[in-house]
Design a protein around this nucleic acid. Structure first.
Lengths: 141, 141
DNA sequence: CTAGTTGCAAAGAGTTTGCATGGCG
DNA sequence: CGCCATGCAAACTCTTTGCAACTAG
């Protein structure tokens, strides 16, 4: 087999966008927030480029994408250990916090769904919506 | 207290839209599909009116709204017994089927999340994504 | 060199809003 | 009659695409 040119180049924009997603840890951002982040930067990155890179990172499995109830997309770094592929995510509808759920019972649910209900859940696309403890207590709206 | 005018009128459009959602049973439709349905009708209903009624029905708790991965909204009648407030919904990413999950373990999950993780889940807004048995077997895409 | 990358402007999809007209109560 | 309802067109938000210039390998 011959050594052919790669179908992907290493560009500084690509690296900066991935680095930014990595730097957020398990926090989540909208495409708009990513665009804004790079607007406050020496070298601005156009929003088209940002959308294209986010799309690619999702396809490559490096970040996950889900939808806010308003319809816009939200992105989050998955991490080298792919832990986010193995647990549920809870999102508080009041304060917006994203919670990573490490719980044995919930983990078993995945197998239960597959074996008892013949349904293979996609944890990357699934987010559970509700209200977190702080907001339940605070009662703020 | 005096008998004041209602803040909502009973109009034929409102009734027709609710009737349509009810007639779908537990099936789900996009706003676009509702618009199209009424385009094939003697009296067409404008899409603005449809969006406004769907929004109201969601606010009134008569239908639930969730988002497809593409970002557009999907609506589904809840029913008088409010059963859909008490179980999870599974959506197959391949064939689009919506499954209503009646399962003891899954029902317990709600209480578990609340008591052990201090999180009150909103089953109306939550949909689990994945692949259904038929598509797992068929292997189509 | 050559294919992938970038970003502006324009196009698109989905949804909301302004406003004048029509209809319920 | 006073509001609410309706719907057309326009505005808006989020995202994708066309295209010409640019750049990594």
């Amino acid at each position: 087999m011959k050594q052919r040119r790669p179908d992907r180049y290493n560009t500084s924009n690509g690296k900066r966008i991935l680095d930014y997603m990595v730097s957020l840890g398990d926090r989540h951002v909208t495409a708009h927030q990513v665009v804004q982040h790079f607007e406050n930067t020496a070298a601005v990155i156009g929003q088209t480029t940002i959308y294209r890179h986010l799309e690619r990172l999702v396809a490559e499995g490096k970040i996950r994408q889900y939808r806010l109830s308003g319809g816009s997309a939200c992105y989050q770094y998955i991490g080298p250990d792919k832990a986010c592929q193995e647990h549920f995510h809870l999102k508080c509808e009041t304060c917006g916090t994203l919670i990573h759920l490490d719980c044995t019972l919930l983990d078993k649910m995945q197998g239960h769904l597959l074996h008892e209900h013949d349904f293979q859940i996609n944890l990357l696309k699934t987010t559970l919506y509700g209200t977190c403890g702080a907001c339940l207590a605070g009662g703020k709206a």
